[in-house]
Design a protein around this nucleic acid. Structure first.
Lengths: 214, 214
DNA sequence: TAGATTGTTAATCGATTAACAATC
DNA sequence: TAGATTGTTAATCGATTAACAATC
């Protein structure tokens, strides 16, 4: 338990939340009013105790024996807990195809993410925006982040430039980094780095196939 | 230890491997001949025993006390272990901006991934290929996978269609799925699903900011 | 030799799962 | 009441880390 009287929530639990939310939204759409932990556990192939604990971590009202949890309430509590109802302004560094894909993905907006600027080392060739987001020169990163009080930086640049732009983001007072570059980033302790290393996933896949195919 | 006399390697260890590989490539380029586990651990902010165990899991030759490991040999052993030297043919389902980004990302080719076909429910509008990869109709998924003995399916379709195309891939005899859709997929036990759920990462970021900003 | 590093065994830590009384 | 489900405490499991003898 922490001081806010919620149990401590692990990263693993946080990462399961969007799966719960997705199921809850489906149930809500179907006008289903209540749902039990074992039911959700079955749908997602998880342990029911784990689901119950995860629910307990975010829920203001307790579940009722025999019936379970109120779908809408659980959904709201969960979204609230994750901070989806807040709007988190972010900048993205890099304007390649991955950056475009992230900017274009409107599902992130449903989760409170708002990309307000894109940066590129050479914002040349007359390209002034990507999908409605202005492209600025990389040397303005720190300044803009500080001035606009941006808290999230999304890194999509090649591996070799990632640490450099990371340092610029940190200098700009960013608090969290979503790192799509396949490198380890060194940051001060208070800064959260969420790595999205696709080569790491590929390693798991590749090794599995090697083993499976002898 | 498994029968092939390598220690059992966890998913976590596999996911650290690309970070080691990256550092080893840098060292190799700098013509550095040997490297120790504590050195790599420091660079990547990891525990040195963990690094040593990971190295032991993939290394054919043992490291030498005082000097450490031979850079080139360790690098080769690691790439070999992950199966990077094999070519893994894959198909991708969906032709949106994320699919384009994945197809265009040539770094995956360095890791043995070769995308041979893209599928779309409505391969219309005269678009017949993305970045040199042919676009085919989704109803051909199972057939093509089976005929070409494809082992990897990459799912980039919207959440609502993910399970459907997943089933088609499974029917086509696929062994591993790289899932970019933000949903849980139900598959037979022997099939590996590697989830790349960006909304799960966003949940971690979002919750961290909520806590940090009170 | 002294010191750095190795590999391995034992201890710790933390997440998941099982067991169970309480409740509707 | 019986049965499903809840929340919680205890047990298990597995990954990480510490301790230490062996080696160059």
């Amino acid at each position: 338990m922490c001081e806010c009287n919620h149990p401590v929530v692990t990263v693993q639990a946080l990462q399961r939340m969007p799966y719960y939310i997705q199921q809850l939204r489906i149930l809500k759409e179907k006008k289903v009013e209540t749902v039990s932990a074992p039911k959700i556990a079955e749908l997602l192939n998880l342990n029911e105790v784990q689901v119950r604990k995860d629910f307990a971590a975010v829920c203001r009202e307790k579940g009722k024996p025999k019936t379970g949890f109120l779908v809408t309430e659980l959904l709201n509590n969960m979204e609230e807990f994750l901070g989806y109802h807040n709007v988190n302004e972010a900048v993205i560094i890099g304007t390649g195809s991955l950056a475009r894909a992230i900017i274009a993905d409107d599902s992130f907006q449903n989760f409170g993410l708002k990309i307000v600027a894109a940066f590129d080392t050479s914002p040349n060739q007359g390209d002034t925006e990507v999908c409605g987001v202005k492209i600025l020169s990389s040397d303005k990163i720190s300044n803009l982040c500080r001035r606009m009080q941006i808290h999230i930086g999304i890194i999509t640049v090649p591996a070799g430039q990632a640490q450099i732009v990371c340092d610029q983001l940190v200098a700009g007072g960013i608090l969290a980094i979503w790192n799509f570059a396949s490198v380890h980033l060194s940051v001060p302790e208070h800064i959260l780095v969420q790595n999205e290393n696709l080569t790491a996933s590929l390693a798991v896949l590749s090794n599995y196939l090697k083993k499976t195919l002898q």
